[in-house]
Amino acid sequence: MGGGMSMNLVKAGFPVTVWNRTASKMEPLIEAGAKAAGSPKEVAAASDIIVSIVTDSSDVEAVILGSEGAIHGTKPGDIVIDMSTISPAVTKSINEKLGAKGVKMLDAPVSGGAIGARDGTLSIMVGGDDETFKECLPVFEAMGKTITHVGGNGMGQTVKLVNQILVGTAMLGVAEALMFAKKSGVDLEKCHAAVSGGAAGGWQLTNNGARLLKGDMEPGFKIKDYLKDLRLIMEAAADVKMPLVETSVVQQMYKSLEAEGLTQKGTQAIIKAVEKLAGETLV
Rank of each mutant, 00 (worst) to 15 (best):
I71K: 07
H72M: 07
G73E: 01
G73F: 08
T74K: 04
T74M: 15
T74F: 05
T74R: 03
T74Q: 03
K75M: 05
K75E: 13
P76Y: 11
D78W: 01
D78Q: 13
I79L: 15
D82W: 06
D82A: 05
M83D: 10
M83N: 03
M83L: 04
S84C: 02
S84R: 08
S84H: 05
T85W: 01
S87G: 06
P88M: 10
A89T: 14
A89S: 14
A89L: 10
T91H: 11
S93R: 14
S93V: 11
N95E: 15
N95K: 15
E96I: 07
E96H: 02
L98D: 03
L98G: 01
G99K: 04
A100T: 10
A100I: 13
G102C: 12
V103R: 00
V103E: 03
K104F: 14
M105N: 07
M105Q: 08
D107F: 02
D107G: 00
D107M: 06
V110T: 13
S111N: 04
G112T: 09
G112Q: 02
G112D: 13
G113C: 12
A114T: 15
I115M: 12
I115F: 11
G116W: 07
A117P: 08
A117Q: 07
R118N: 14
G120W: 07
T121E: 07
L122K: 09
I124Y: 04
M125G: 04
M125Q: 06
M125P: 03
G127W: 07
G127D: 08
G128R: 00
D129C: 02
D129M: 09
D130E: 15
E131L: 13
T132N: 00
K134S: 14
C136S: 05
L137W: 01
P138D: 00
P138T: 03
F140W: 04
F140K: 04
M143V: 13
G144K: 08
T146G: 06
V150D: 01
V150Q: 08
G151Q: 00
G152L: 09
N153D: 13
N153I: 15
M155G: 11
M155C: 14
G156Q: 05
Q157C: 15
Q157Y: 12
Q157F: 08
